[in-house]
Amino acid sequence: MFDVLVFVYENYWHGDACPELAHLERKLSAVGFDPEEIQDALTWLDDLTLAASGLRPPTPGDAPVSSTPMSDVLAWTPSPHSMRIYSIAEQNHLGASCLGFISFLESSGALSANQRELVIDRAMAATSDPLPLDDLKIIVLMVFWSLGEKPDALVLDELCEDTSGRIAH
């Protein structure tokens, strides 16, 4: 699924440029992706679009957003002094490296609390258990993509660069 998401991100830089799901499915199939992988990715993308619609300001002519659990979560603005407590299921599924990375993005100001919740929602929908950090980075990129936002250059570097060869000093 994540290979499909990377392909979509690379080929449709702006979420608005992405074709409708049926057309996208045909394109992905023509490129050679596995049908099951395509279906998983399209379902994941459709859910992302639905959840992200609660974060975007409405434009004239938008249809009303249906009440979904994620849109209910995004309907409030948390206090800047609030703290996110992760459930046991979230801790087990995301693991220490993903939770640390989310915390890093949020503390650096790259990820708002509402965006964090969207990232966690989409990460929990991923089937890998525990979720690899590289997959979480793709999820973060897709959240920015779905909101029509471009992450800061340093954050983008952190999300896209292979950091396994870095030496801490």
Rank of each mutant, 00 (worst) to 15 (best):
A52H: 00
A52I: 00
A52N: 00
S53A: 15
S53Q: 02
S53G: 05
G54W: 00
G54R: 02
G54D: 01
L55I: 06
L55W: 01
L55F: 00
L55S: 04
L55C: 03
R56T: 04
R56M: 07
R56H: 06
R56Y: 03
R56A: 00
R56W: 00
P57T: 03
P58W: 04
T59W: 09
T59M: 11
T59A: 12
P60L: 06
P60A: 15
P60F: 04
P60E: 09
P60D: 08
G61I: 10
G61H: 05
G61K: 02
G61R: 07
G61E: 05
D62A: 06
D62L: 02
D62P: 03
D62M: 06
A63N: 10
A63I: 10
P64S: 06
P64G: 03
P64W: 01
V65T: 07
V65S: 14
V65I: 15
S66M: 12
S66Y: 11
S67R: 12
S67L: 15
T68C: 02
T68F: 04
T68N: 03
T68K: 01
P69N: 09
P69D: 12
P69L: 15
M70H: 03
M70C: 08
M70V: 09
M70F: 12
S71H: 15
S71G: 07
S71P: 01
V73F: 07
V73S: 04
V73D: 02
L74W: 01
L74F: 11
L74C: 09
L74I: 14
A75T: 15
A75W: 06
A75K: 12
A75G: 14
W76L: 04
W76N: 02
T77H: 11
T77S: 12
T77D: 12
T77E: 10
T77K: 13
P78W: 06
P78N: 11
P78Y: 04
P78H: 11
P78V: 07
S79R: 05
S79Q: 05
S79W: 07
P80I: 08
P80S: 07
H81Y: 09
H81E: 13
S82H: 12
M83V: 10
M83N: 14
M83S: 13
R84H: 12
R84P: 06
R84M: 13
R84V: 14
I85Y: 14
Y86D: 08
Y86H: 11
Y86V: 04
Y86L: 13
Y86M: 08
Y86T: 06
S87D: 10
S87H: 04
I88G: 06
I88N: 10
A89K: 12
E90D: 08
Q91P: 03
N92K: 14
H93Y: 00
H93C: 04
L94V: 01
L94H: 05
L94R: 05
G95Q: 09
A96H: 13
A96P: 04
A96G: 07
A96V: 09
S97E: 15
S97P: 08
S97F: 12
S97Q: 14
S97A: 15
S97W: 13
S97G: 08
C98E: 02
L99K: 03
L99E: 01
G100V: 07
G100I: 05
F101G: 02
